[in-house]
Write a protein that binds this DNA or RNA. Structure first.
Length: 782
DNA sequence: ACCTCTTACGTTTTT
DNA sequence: CGTAAGAGGT
């Protein structure tokens, strides 16, 4: 038997060794799904399948990168490089780069991110003389997006009865019109939004039999990860691709389907067996990740959902600790509790920062955690905030590159035509847009013929100079790589000099961000393969396309030891030793937006299931009595999901049991006393640590905080095995105590008020420290 | 044309 | 509460 088959359990081996014909792997949380996927690919290769004939689709670049890495490890050679592994979006973008001309797009088409897309919608709404207060870009955009994901084009949208009824009911009858205008504008701009990458791929396969044939025979073996999260377009595409060989292997867990808002339909996995004859089904039910208590709770909660694929997740792991339920007074207390507990766990159980994750339902919840961690001096990183590439100054430079690669990109063109200021004012730009629309030309075409278009004098000169400049940049493309062109842009346009001369803090940060962008382009240019493992394509177009599909969660910068903060969505597929789930409250989790139908609620429950099953050893669920929302203090009940967890697995000692408010308030006030004592307010924290990263972005690509090195080196102390915090209310000078971190010491004096006593302690190895007795955990030795 | 102040609005979740 | 877009002033 081949080496790689060792260490697989029976169902895993069954899945790995099934080569031909449709296969569905129902993989429970933590059941070794990635292991099976990667081993299966290795097995395919060992069985003589050519790497070039294998396609593996994932939802995140991170998952793709991990798979590739693990396959390389198993194979021990560079054959993995020839595999087509990537996200739906990046793989299709790559294919479309070669085929786009067939459907009227330039091969260096632009990819619009959500911001670009919203901006186009806004333009279109205004051009149609509709009220943009009523037709809000976000609302319209998500309608259009759902339509695209369901393979409904503008024409069908306008004629489909129930859709029109919905729009009429919402008093937005013109969405169909906007959709049509938006689609044709994107086309005119030579741009595809995220949904188009799927939609156009489908159109391509559906319209051109020779293209379909080509990829059907190229991808003889197809694997799809997270199949429960596929939407209609993705489903149809993979069905088309797999139609000839039917060597399609889908992996998923219906209990972890959490992307219906993006058009994912759980039906795809539930119905898979009906799509093909002779579907082999393998269930992976043994969990290798979590403790028994965690698995039991997860199973019990998810049981409240109807209509699942029956399965029984089990584990041989130990029972582990009970799940700790935590109630605090406010959201800030919640943050403090978490930061404090992390500190404590690090000391008590020898965890590292990287063993902890703080998960939440909405991004906005990160703030309270962030502040507390910062105060405690705990290094952390937030995943999924505003990405580096969305910063204005970065987008400006990228806009130049976009225009150079694709002059049809009107969004980018409007962004840079008068940046830096070159005397092309608002009126001129509007005139250009109008002419372009009337003559059905691109805006850049208008600029090229500015003279015939009726522009005169200095305006004409400015326009002509602009065109000449862009042309110059384009001419560089022939011999220079993306980095050299970008540098030329920075120099020639004076952008770099301008930012450099801005000596304000923000100006400095902007300058550094642009430098950072240039560095990243350079890095990309010099790296051997891009994210698809594709060798060679180092063109500007390729760079721009992959940049747009990059999320900040993708950079695998695992080197630094930090606590990770992210939404539960972002945490899917990951695992952590210790997990805190914050805001387990009604109207947050489940979200107030998702409690109107059974389907919505069940998805929230699946999300809860995902959150719980991220934890390997320890899990805390916290909820606050009241928290700030829209600047107002609101009160939420504990989440209904808490009631669904059987008592036997739960430790409620932090939730206050009967006297809940009492316990909560004591916690809160104790912490507050501590802060007053240290003068440790947000303001003083800023003095010590600098302003929070959210406010002052520097060169960092995403929020990341490393605490300053300690002023005096602390001699680390291993707490005694029997360490128990003593009652310190009667503590007197001269007594000997043990501190968790500073070790043994002698009380020199006790000061402070009665409710806020401060002890000055002479430690044996760490010198003199002032310790807040209300807070610190001290063991009285004698 | 640019900067500052005010107001309005928003919180699901992401490629 | 915090940000983003509009208004109004210089």
């Amino acid at each position: 038997m081949q080496d790689y088959l060792k260490g697989l359990n029976e169902p895993q081996r069954e899945a790995v060794t099934h080569i031909n014909g449709p296969l569905m792997i129902v993989a429970g949380a933590g059941s070794g799904k990635t292991k099976v996927l990667t081993t299966r690919i290795a097995h395919l290769l060992a069985s003589g399948v050519d790497a070039f004939n294998i396609l593996a689709l994932t939802f995140t670049n991170k998952a793709a990168a991990e798979m590739k890495e693990r396959i390389e490890k198993i194979l021990g050679n560079s054959e993995a490089r020839n595999l087509y592994i990537g996200t739906f979006h990046s793989v299709f973008a790559r294919i479309l780069r070669g085929e786009a001309h067939r459907i009227g797009y330039p091969n260096s088409f632009t990819i619009y991110d959500t911001d670009d897309s919203r901006s186009v919608i806004k333009t279109v709404v205004n051009e149609l003389n509709l009220d943009d207060k009523h037709y809000k870009p976000n609302v319209v955009g998500s309608r259009i997006s759902s339509a695209k994901n369901a393979l409904i084009g503008p024409a069908e949208y306008a004629t489909t009865h129930y859709i029109q009824q919905e729009d009429m009911r919402a008093n937005r009858p013109a969405i169909a019109q906007i959709y049509a205008a938006y689609a044709s504008r994107c086309f005119k701009n030579g741009a595809m939004d995220f949904d188009d990458l799927l939609l156009k791929m489908y159109e391509l396969l559906n319209t051109f039999p020779e293209v379909l044939h080509k990829y059907q025979h190229k991808f003889k073996y197809i694997m799809i990860d997270e199949y429960q999260d596929t939407n209609t377009v993705q489903y149809q595409i993979t069905k088309l691709l797999a139609a000839v060989h039917e060597n399609i292997c889908v992996v998923g867990d219906d209990a972890q389907s959490i992307y219906s808002f993006r058009g994912a339909t759980i039906e795809n996995i539930l119905q898979f067996q009906k799509d093909y004859d002779d579907v082999k089904v393998v269930k992976l039910e043994q969990n290798y990740r979590s403790s028994q208590n965690i698995i039991s709770v997860a199973n019990e909660v998810i049981r409240n959902n109807k209509g699942q694929i029956p399965k029984n997740l089990w584990t041989e792991n130990e029972h582990g600790e009970k799940i700790k339920l935590v109630r605090t007074m406010t959201d800030n207390d919640e943050g403090r509790f978490v930061a404090d507990t992390i500190q404590e766990q690090k000391l008590r159980n020898h965890y590292h920062n990287s063993d902890f994750a703080i998960l939440y339902r909405t991004n906005a919840q990160s703030r309270a955690f962030e502040e507390s961690l910062r105060r405690m001096g705990i290094a952390y990183r937030i995943y999924g905030g505003t990405s580096f590439y969305q910063r204005k100054e970065v987008k400006d430079v990228l806009a130049y590159l976009r225009v150079i690669a694709n002059t049809r990109d009107e969004e980018a063109l409007k962004r840079i035509i008068n940046y830096p200021v070159r005397g092309i004012g608002k009126t001129t730009i509007e005139k250009c847009v109008i002419i372009a629309n009337e003559q059905n030309m691109t805006m850049f075409d208008v600029l090229q013929q500015a003279g015939t278009a009726g522009f005169k004098g200095s305006t004409l000169e400015s326009l002509q100079n602009f065109v000449t400049m862009i042309r110059y940049f384009q001419s560089l493309l022939a011999e220079k790589n993306a980095y050299d062109v970008a540098v030329q842009v920075g120099k020639h346009t004076n952008i770099i000099k301008e930012l450099f001369n801005d000596k304000t803090t923000e100006g400095l940060a902007r300058y550094e961000n642009v430098q950072e962008l240039l560095n990243s382009i350079k890095e990309w240019t010099e790296s051997p393969g891009n994210e698809d493992g594709e060798v060679g394509d180092k063109s500007l177009g390729a760079y721009l396309q992959q940049i747009t599909l990059l999320t900040d969660a993708d950079e695998n910068k695992e080197d630094s030891d930090v606590v990770k903060l992210m939404t539960i969505h972002a945490a899917k597929g990951l695992e952590f030793g210790c997990v805190f789930v914050g805001g387990v409250e009604e109207s947050i989790f489940p979200s107030g937006m998702s409690i109107n139908t059974r389907e919505e609620l069940e998805e929230e429950r699946r999300l809860f299931y995902v959150a719980v099953t991220r934890a390997k050893q320890r899990l805390w669920l916290s909820y606050a009595n009241s928290r700030y929302r829209f600047g107002q203090l609101v009160q939420n009940d504990p989440s209904r999901f808490i009631e669904e967890m059987p008592d036997q697995y739960i430790d409620r000692s932090y939730a206050g049991g009967g006297a809940r408010n009492h316990a909560g308030s004591e916690w809160g006030s104790g912490i507050e006393r501590m802060q007053r004592g240290f003068g440790n307010t947000a303001a003083s924290a800023e003095k010590r640590y600098g302003p929070p990263p959210a406010k002052k972005p520097s060169v960092q690509k995403r929020p990341e905080y490393m605490p300053p090195p300690p002023q005096s080196k602390v001699v680390t102390h291993q707490p005694s095995a029997d360490f128990v915090a003593s009652d310190t209310s009667q503590l007197q000078a001269g007594q000997r105590v043990e501190h968790q971190k500073f070790g043994f010491g002698k009380i020199a004096s006790i000061e402070g008020s009665a409710h806020n006593p401060v002890a000055t302690i002479q430690f044996e190895h760490n010198g003199e420290k002032k310790i807040m007795l209300n807070y610190a955990k001290l063991r009285i030795v004698e």
